[in-house]
């Protein structure tokens, strides 16, 4: 029965993505089940291993930060519950010393020390969250994205204990009343499941870059880490970049460009 349902959803999802249909019924199904239905469209972006660079010097104002996090949270129906205990976040700001514990010292220049860093799921090459999940509800896709099936997650939160980056949030209560403006094209979640950044797999399937990248005015780049000609590889070959907690061996795919580039424009 579940296979039939899933097959149906794939077809329904694909039809919507191709723009062949847009009936209210399909939208209603998509609203709650779209994650099972991310199927690539004809213009889909593909990669062997998706990665991101974040140039911390290119994001200058609080407003710019908010624009980026809002772009993500609004399209993904991330609720704003308003208290720290129940908080759900996919991308957010932390100071340098909290982003890179152990790398901080008192002589770090002020513009770095008090610079907010954008944090999100690192889509690790060897994700501990995937290793510990007892139901394969969180899994690694062939393109390197660490994805989730919200319908299979039993809410054991082993992945939250395993993630060294604090990237995962749990729905401690029904999130739906706290979604300001619901995006009908992306599923909402229910209480009792874990969620996190998806590297916008649903947008990649339509040929669009992640929402945060699009909203970043060039501060964030996105591309295939295994393609030497990709934008991220270009940035990484010309700038000095850090990853969070690389010593743990999880292989984070998000790079933070700290210094200026060697390149002259």
């Amino acid at each position: 029965m579940s296979i039939n349902r899933r097959e149906f959803l794939k077809i329904a999802g694909a039809s919507t993505l191709f723009g062949l249909t847009g009936t209210a019924a399909v939208e209603e199904i998509l609203r709650t089940n779209a994650d099972a239905a991310v199927l690539k469209g004809p213009n889909a972006l593909n990669a062997k291993r998706w990665a991101m660079t974040i140039d911390v010097n290119k994001i200058r104002s609080e407003e710019e930060y908010r624009k980026i996090t809002h772009a993500c949270h609004s399209i993904h129906n991330v609720p704003d519950i308003g208290n720290k205990k129940d908080e759900i976040k996919w991308i957010w700001e932390e100071e340098y010393e909290n982003s890179f514990p152990g790398l901080s010292d008192e002589f770090v220049p002020d513009h770095i020390k008090h610079k907010p860093f954008l944090l999100l799921c690192n889509h690790c090459a060897k994700p501990p969250c995937v290793r510990v999940c007892p139901t394969k509800a969180t899994f690694k896709r062939p393109d390197g994205i660490v994805a989730m099936d919200y319908h299979r997650c039993i809410g054991c939160r082993f992945c939250m204990a395993a993630c060294p980056f604090g990237a995962r949030s749990f729905n401690w209560r029904d999130p739906r009343p706290f979604i300001k403006e619901e995006n009908k094209e992306f599923p909402t979640r229910m209480k009792g499941v874990v969620e996190k950044c998806t590297f916008c797999s649903e947008r990649l399937a339509r040929g669009q870059k992640p929402a945060c990248v699009e909203a970043s005015n060039g501060a964030l780049t996105f591309g295939d880490l295994e393609d030497p000609n990709s934008e991220v590889r270009h940035v990484l070959s010309t700038h000095y970049a850090l990853r969070r907690k690389p010593d743990l061996g999880t292989g984070p795919s998000v790079y933070y460009v700290i210094g200026g580039g060697t390149e002259h424009a």
Partner: peptide, 29 residues
Amino acid sequence: FIFVDLGQPMRVMNVILHPTPNSILFWDA
């Protein structure tokens, strides 16, 4: 105690339906 800690207790059988030997929780169960 494991059961009451689950966010989606009705799905507990997923541990058996989708056995995952790389998860220590699977072995613990």
